[in-house]
């Protein structure tokens, strides 16, 4: 069996697993509620009087900080806890296919949740004449950023059999990536690291790259940033699983 077929089989099982339990429905409802609250109450969607979805997208980095690790924490920790990791890894599938299949299923699930926010898009189109290109770009940026969070969460989940630990550590690491461009982090590093290193750290910020995309400019560099972030963390995921199979 080739790698793609294996990835697809794992993907299908994992995606179905979300909907086999209340997890998917609880997550989607909470996701839609919280995006709604942030958009209308915190983001003052109506009072802004502008026909765009900035008030909706600007909170995604912070919303994802807690919601995405809630999806990713179970990816590997649960397999370890239940012992199914032993079953999975003795079936004739490449480890890379398993890692990719699990990640893609989680990403696809996130995309479904995000797609269900479409009434907001309808609303803003009903009320005004928004730049739908910008909105489309923002959705793209949002899903790319979610992929980054998920890849981090998946890798962390592989290090433990405890989902709570996976959640807390993932939130922390994601937080670092969100605020990497903020003064709180840059000041911490700039004191003792050469400026170019501090610049590199700053350029890893999820927030900076996301804001660039939601401004309506899909710069290839921002896309590459997220894609390579995902690739690096998934690669780390493969290594972690390989090294820590038995634990």
């Amino acid at each position: 069996m080739n790698g793609l077929k294996g990835t697809y089989i794992i993907f299908r099982r994992e995606l179905a697993a979300y909907f086999a339990t209340p997890l998917a429905y609880v997550f989607i409802v909470i996701f839609l509620f919280s995006t709604g609250i942030f958009t209308f109450y915190v983001g003052n969607f109506f009072d802004r009087g502008q026909d765009d979805l900035k008030a909706f997208f600007m909170f995604h980095p912070w919303l994802y900080l807690f919601l995405i690790p809630a999806i990713s924490m179970r990816l590997w920790a649960e397999e370890r806890k239940q012992g199914t990791i032993e079953l999975l890894m003795t079936l004739p599938v490449r480890l890379g296919s398993i890692v990719a299949g699990k990640f893609l299923a989680a990403w696809c699930f996130t995309a479904i949740a995000l797609a269900l926010t479409f009434p907001l898009w309808l609303t803003v189109n009903y009320l005004g004449h928004p730049d739908n290109g910008v909105i489309l770009a923002s959705y793209l940026g949002s899903i790319l950023m979610a992929g980054g969070y998920l890849a981090i969460g998946a890798c962390i989940s592989a290090t433990t059999r405890n989902q709570v630990i996976a959640f807390v550590v993932s939130v922390t690491i994601c937080f670092i990536f969100v605020v990497a461009g903020a003064p709180i982090v840059l000041d911490f590093f700039s004191g003792w690291l050469p400026p170019f290193v501090a610049n590199i750290i700053g350029s890893l910020s999820f927030l900076t790259h996301f804001n660039a995309i939601t401004d309506g400019v899909v710069d290839l560099r921002d896309v590459i940033f997220y894609v390579s972030t995902i690739a690096v963390w998934l690669f780390a995921n493969v290594i972690v699983v390989d090294l820590k199979k038995a634990a």
Partner: peptide, 11 residues
């Protein structure tokens, strides 16, 4: 058949 016969509980 691994020890404890693990299987996905939700399936």
């Amino acid at each position: 058949l691994p020890e404890g016969a693990p299987a996905y509980p939700d399936m």
